[in-house]
Write a protein that binds this DNA or RNA. Structure first.
Lengths: 224, 224
DNA sequence: GCAAAAGTGTTCTTTGTACACCCATGG
DNA sequence: CCATGGGTGTACAAAGAACACTTTTGC
């Protein structure tokens, strides 16, 4: 009976904030990019919807949750992704009037249920922080440790201690030195690092935060 | 286009082993209990399939993953549960020839993809161990700490240190004393405990184990 | 009195957290 | 020479891991 649709929670770090990608169809409120399935693998259908509606392509998607919303006749399989906004110019698709990044703490009115999906996507992202080198994919090939830390702080929504962060990031071996930056303005020039693509865990406070992710409000079934 | 089905990874601890519930339809190999959707909330449809095929009722389901398997025209939304086998007698449904618990390390030939679903369900269960009082729902109202430890050991597939386990379980405050057991055979009689329903974390090795759960092999989409 | 299971504490190591000052540069 | 941002180390607290013997009972 039930039909399947896909929807995407695509996030970025920009303007010192975590932002989500939203689209607006003519005469509608904002919503997550979403679309029907065509019988390809779901993730392929999701990638297609994303490409058609926002112009974004070639990103890694991770399945998030399948929502069966009150009164909906469809099951929406959602995907999350974290990308570098500046490497993915936006191009609204034909039935889309607007595509835009919104700060996750300052969302516009949304299609029912999409706010939940975003919240859950954010939780998943925070959780991954504890064991995956998430930030690295957001930064240019070479970056400073302060930039890396800034990304983590935005994703976690929490200030990190610089000394501990550096110690942990270096110890985890995700980065290797790559020269020295020559940024404009005053201040000592920073060292540059590049990703070593290995496994990561900034084992500290992130792990605590990561621990418990409740499922979104699909009602539990517990009769009697 | 795509249709939705539901399937269930229902687990128990029995015979010193973690077991999964499987069903067999006439002329078929074993499979997870599964069924179509009827437009009710998915979890309700899942509960119905479980009840119709196995006779099991009234259990708490948690969404696991949505599988879109190679060549399948359906998306299978899977659910996990952990129950006490002895409190749920099995009653094969009308189109089922056999319902049985199988040790998770000794599964029969299965419908394609179901082994993955089981493995992922097991991983999820292990992960929950770190922060949820999972074992308590498997034991009778009053139980000994050794019984509780045995459940954890089976779920984690790992031997735990008795002294550390007791310290942590008591410190976590999930159990309270409830008299003394008088089990047959030699040996000092054990104290009984009952669940206090509070939150739990046997914070030790479980957390390490819990950390990383990779998604099952839905192929990642990463063009270019 | 011995076999069987229950119960109990301490030490060491690792991980996490808090915290304040000097360094290199541009203007 | 000062404002700006980069970089560094140490001490304390908490959590985890390892480890062996005594107690209570049935037979």
């Amino acid at each position: 009976m039930t039909q399947v649709s896909v929807e995407l929670v695509v996030m970025t770090v920009q303007h010192d904030d975590l932002e989500v990608l939203l689209v607006r169809r003519p005469g509608n409120v904002w919503s997550l990019p979403s679309g029907p399935t065509y019988g390809s693998p779901l993730a392929v259908d999701a990638a297609r919807a994303l490409h058609d509606q926002t112009g974004i392509d070639g990103i890694r998607l991770e399945q998030l949750f399948s929502f069966d919303r009150e009164g909906a006749t469809q099951v929406a399989v959602s995907y999350v992704a974290l990308i570098a906004a500046d490497r993915h110019p936006l191009a609204p698709g034909s039935d889309i009037v607007e595509v835009r990044w919104f700060a996750i703490n300052d969302l516009p009115a949304l299609v029912t249920g999409h706010a939940d999906a975003i919240a859950y996507g954010h939780a998943r992202l925070r959780a991954k922080t504890a064991y995956a080198p998430i930030a690295v994919q957001l930064l240019p090939e070479a970056f400073t440790l302060r930039e890396l830390q800034a990304v983590y702080e935005v994703v976690l929504g929490e200030r990190l201690d610089t000394r501990n962060f550096r110690r942990d990031a270096l110890a985890a071996g995700i980065v290797e030195a790559a020269g020295t930056a020559r940024r404009p303005g005053p201040g000592r020039p920073a060292r540059l690092y590049r990703s070593r693509g290995s496994d990561f865990s900034v084992t500290a406070r992130e792990r605590r935060i990561a621990g418990r992710i409740a499922q979104p409000s699909t009602p539990d079934i517990t009769p009697e």
